[in-house]
Amino acid sequence: MANVIITGASRGIGLAIAQALVRDDYTVIAIARQETEELAAARQQAPESIYFAPFDLSEIDKLHELARELRARFGPIYGLINNAGIGTEGILATMPESNIEKLIRLNMLSPIMLTKYVVRSMMNEGAGRIVNISSIIASTGYQGLSVYAATKASMIGFTKSLAREVGRLGINVNAVAPGFLETELTGSMNDAQRQRIAGRSALQRLANVEDVAEAVTFLLSDKARNITGTVLTVDAGSTA
């Protein structure tokens, strides 16, 4: 079973990716600060296929050791899904500097550093897949999300150049750009807002986390062997 690391795997998109990869016979190494009930339940259902690695991804200086430990414990790493991130909103002119720094640290610096060390295992094996979770906000813009957008746009630039860098070693690097998702909207938007956003999409609905998970499993599969350096948008056509 090929090993795949997923960051932010305790809920939402990360958890959905973990469940889809287990279904497709991968071994999942789920990284999150704390285990949720949902992740614990998924582990109970597939104790040989999902492992929980508690870790605070903002601790940049410990990422090298984390990568070493995971390599030593599980063997070669085939896949890395850089999913963890925060979506702090704020008008830039009044946003606390600490919030700006935290966004950049978690959404940008941390995935780049983790990739630096995990890609070494892939280089030694001459094979690997990296998927960076970006966002349609990277290209569309949204009021109150300028810093978040900057971090998500950076993941696309990172994806394209790293794909060039490691392609000849048999490593594919892609990004997935989800739109507004069904589940993530429920907490912060009312029905009218949901319907307005869904009404703007080509398919007149919202994508959900399972749709994003299927895009990721495709990019990890052999079917995507000739796809690298690209962005797969999953937004039910809201940016079409």
């Binding site: 070493r68 070494r120 295992s121 280089m123 490691v166």
Partner: peptide, 11 residues
């Protein structure tokens, strides 16, 4: 890239 491979392998 070869030197990066060397560092990865030696690690």
């Amino acid at each position: 890239l070869c030197f990066a491979l060397l560092v990865a392998r030696l690690e």
